[in-house]
């Protein structure tokens, strides 16, 4: 019997907002620091439960660099009472944090392969830690491509960072938006239109793909990847469900035989492919 004390996963730790900044009209990023002790290490793709005292708790993916766990960054879009309260927190404000929880993007195991990230909207936030990992160990991978789709040019998340990635000689970045004004010089269309171009010239057997965004976007992107010949066991997606306890106990995020909080949010696509095609699951 182990006598090692494990922290209670249901007990939030106190963190303070070190810095908060606006990303988009309805999305904010926060850099958090623990009141006591060190910030917990995390894997790319994992999430924390963020608790705004007196308002409520929600699951938010960690969007910072896993190599710098002391800078705990989350990006949140205001869509309800808790997320709006989170986005109203300012430097010095306190909140509760439980986590990190869930499965992670297995990028570290995919060395030597062509890495393709496909992100839609705020889906870039959960993928960013994996992108950081690949960029930091770029020489271990055959190539790195990011295909990113957003609603409009004003709603491109991490726009400055995307620009910096685009300027690297060892990284391909393809950005597309659903609609744009005449001043836009990039692509207009959905991410699937960029995927064929991203995969052109690559041996599909050597591609590993990581997708995060609206489920319909992921479903169609996975179809494109499959049509191009990317092996089904080399495609991972991140699922989003209503997570409450974060430890597979309450059942709120049940997805077929899995709990998204415990068995996900990152799933190998062939594990959930059948469920993804079911209506209203």
């Amino acid at each position: 019997m182990s006598l090692v004390h494990k922290p209670d996963p249901m007990l939030p730790r106190r963190y303070r907002v070190r810095r908060a900044w606006t990303e988009l009209a309805d999305a904010t990023s926060m850099d958090l620091t623990p009141v006591d002790g060190e910030a917990a290490a995390f894997q790319p793709g994992q999430f924390n439960m963020l608790y705004v005292f007196g308002v409520g708790e929600i699951a938010i993916s960690i969007s910072g660099n896993p190599a710098e766990p002391e800078r705990l960054i989350h990006t949140t879009r205001s869509v309800g009472a808790v997320s709006a309260a989170l986005n109203s927190l300012r430097e010095g404000d306190m909140l509760g944090v439980r986590g990190p929880f869930g499965s992670s993007w297995p990028v570290a195991a995919e060395t030597g392969r062509h890495i393709v990230f496909v992100a839609g909207g705020l889906g870039l936030a959960p993928l960013r830690p994996a992108i950081y990992h690949v960029l930091e160990h770029r020489q271990r991978y055959a190539s790195l491509t990011l295909v990113y789709g957003a609603r409009s040019p004003d709603e491109l998340l991490y726009a400055d960072e995307i620009k910096a990635w685009k300027s690297r000689f060892d990284t391909e970045v393809d950005v597309t938006v659903d609609h744009a004004g005449s001043a836009w010089t990039g692509r207009v269309g959905v991410v699937t239109t960029c995927l064929d171009r991203a995969l052109a010239g690559l041996d599909p057997a050597t591609v590993s793909a990581f997708l995060c965004g609206p489920e319909i976007m992921m479903r169609f992107s996975v179809m494109n990847l499959a049509d191009a010949g990317v092996p089904p066991d080399r495609v991972w997606i991140s699922m989003e469900r209503n997570m409450k306890c974060a430890i597979g106990f309450c059942g709120h995020c049940q997805f077929g035989p899995d709990f998204v909080c415990r068995d996900g949010p990152v799933f190998r696509h062939d594990h959930v492919a059948e469920l993804l095609s079911m209506k209203e699951i």
Binding site: V79, D178, V190, M217
Partner: peptide, 17 residues
Amino acid sequence: VRVLRLQLLDLYGPKEG
């Protein structure tokens, strides 16, 4: 046409929650 249908869905718009 498939692409335009996806654009019509406004996939990246905020979801209720």
